[in-house]
């Protein structure tokens, strides 16, 4: 199978093993600009590994990953890091905000990694925090805000660089339904309005329902549910 026409990020026949544990065993994936794709599957099925490979965090053992016409396998670590800084955004289960930085500094962090000046970065960060309704937390430290608020800060951080792909790994995993859904709404709204694609790893169907399409990973193999039946 070749990458579907017009896809922004596509992977074929990915294989990855951690020692004796096979995490990916021929997985496939593709996503179009502005699309929200849910990656589902039981725990340990390899969905997080798929996300890490797609995002260029972990190189796969074999297989190809093409982002915007470029083969990720052909890049070295520095190039992949640069790509992550400029084109990708990340949201993790437990926010992973830097505890010693204030919320606005956390949101500004990816911009500063790209070399934006501190003042400009924090200005842009504040705009995003407003959109995610957490601008009143800007001076607080992550330890002082609630889980839902923290996760919204994390979403703002993922979107602040205007990424073309946002990778979200169980973004609501640590939240209750109400907070989780709010985060999903804000994430998908914001992503759609900036035409960013979202790769959403989740095991919750209600979270996956915010996607346009889902694929299921079982035993390291992916199954595109569009093609089923």
């Amino acid at each position: 199978m070749s990458a579907p026409a017009g896809s922004l990020l596509a992977a074929e026949d990915l294989r990855k093993a951690y020692g004796p544990t096979v995490a990916l065993d021929g997985a496939e994936f593709s996503i179009h600009p502005g699309e929200v794709v849910a990656v589902m599957g039981p725990s340990g099925s390899g969905k997080s590994t798929l996300l890490h490979c797609l995002a260029g965090i972990v190189p796969p053992d074999s297989g190809s990953i093409v982002y915007d016409g470029r083969e990720l396998a052909g890049m070295n670590d520095a190039q992949r890091s640069a790509l992550r800084r400029s084109d990708f955004g990340f949201v993790f289960q437990f926010g992973q905000l830097v505890p010693e930085l204030t919320c606005v500094e956390n949101v500004a962090l990816p911009l500063r990694l790209n070399g934006t000046s501190r003042r400009q970065a924090e200005k842009a960060a504040l705009t995003w925090m407003e959109r995610l309704e957490v601008d009143d937390l800007s001076g607080k430290r992550p330890g002082e805000v609630s889980g839902g608020q923290g996760q919204r800060v994390a979403v703002a951080r993922a979107l602040v660089t205007g990424p073309r792909v946002v990778f979200a790994d169980e973004p609501t995993g640590a939240l209750d339904s109400l907070n989780g859904e709010r985060v999903m709404e804000l994430l998908t709204d914001a992503a759609r309005s900036s035409n960013a694609a979202v790769v959403l790893v989740t095991h919750e169907a209600r979270v996956a329902a915010y996607s346009d399409r889902e694929i299921v990973v079982r035993d390291g193999k992916s199954r595109d549910m569009e093609r089923v039946a």
């Binding site: 169907a205 996956a208 329902a209 889902e214 299921v216 199954r223 549910m225 569009e226 089923v228 039946a229």
Partner: peptide, 9 residues
Amino acid sequence: LDAQRAEHL
């Protein structure tokens, strides 16, 4: 099961 799953989703 998968077809049903897709339909549910």
